[in-house]
Design a protein around this nucleic acid. Structure first.
Lengths: 152, 152
DNA sequence: TTTGGTGCAAAATTTTTGCAGGCTA
DNA sequence: TAGCCTGCAAAAATTTTGCACCAAA
């Protein structure tokens, strides 16, 4: 589950940060498009619809803040854009597992999926390298059903 | 195994591309640092040692070319830099599996590892979504042995 | 010789920063 | 009211492009 507005306001208050229209709108835009993987520019355009006076610099500053609060995730889908999406809300210990991304090399579409198959791998790594894994990000490349049909 | 110079020259020749000192030196720099994850700027600085007249634009154009030839991989370790590393040479069908990266959140060090544990997952995905996976990239975040000791 | 490749500089992008003024608490 | 936050514009940083010249084939 992602943050709702009240939770967000509570988080800001607890950190001594101010609740501003801009911050709420940026988070709202990301919440409204959970699987859209928006760029900073896209977020800016979305927020401008309801609040035309917002500046792009504020969007960047807010993104930075939301990242630090772990409310959103930065993702890079190798299309040359840095993107952001609303994160799962959770305790520190269970926050680890964002969903992953299936990237179609044919049409560029993105499918998200959830899977904890890597837990086993994480254990193995801890054993062999001494590295304790707390989080992971997986990108899978391939061809979606539709593109596969086109190719054949 | 990564490309050697002769293989590289052969590939260029077959594609009707010219073998230039700059192209050879950029590839050589990347080959010499298989686990260094160099940025464009770093590659530029490295090549300049032996060939001071090279331009940064040429480095970018060469990186682009090497990516298209699948001789190098672009990686993003979330430190704000786009990085490149020499890729494994292989047939189209077996090229899938680059190694993956363990990123230490403490000291920023990167460990590379190879694992095919995702094969199982790929099968599962094909079944449930119709998406055929041809490649994957995994990043694992955590704390390396040294940083773990410091924390405790 | 021909064509593609290069270096340089300028342009285009993307992101960050400084500062004066505005708004939240 | 005090200080954080914002908008604007300028700056910084990164990558791309135009063009004349050079070099590989």
């Amino acid at each position: 589950m992602s943050v709702n507005r009240e939770q967000f306001e509570k988080i800001l208050r607890e950190k001594g940060l101010k609740i501003t229209t801009q911050r709420v709108l940026v988070l709202t835009a990301l919440s409204a498009c959970p699987d859209k993987h928006l760029t900073a520019e896209e977020i800016y355009e979305l927020v401008k619809v309801d609040y035309p006076e917002i500046g792009l610099a504020t969007v960047y500053r807010t993104i930075q803040l939301l990242l630090e609060l772990h409310l959103i995730d930065r993702i890079n889908l190798d299309d040359g854009y840095v993107r952001y999406e609303i994160g799962d809300l959770g305790e520190e210990e269970t926050r680890h597992h964002h969903h992953h991304h299936l990237i179609c090399l044919g049409c560029g579409s993105i499918l998200s999926f959830q899977d904890d198959l890597l837990e086993e791998l994480e254990g193995k790594i801890a054993e062999t390298t001494g590295f304790s894994v707390t989080d992971h990000e997986v990108k899978l490349y391939g061809y979606c059903e539709e593109c596969r049909r086109k190719i054949d």
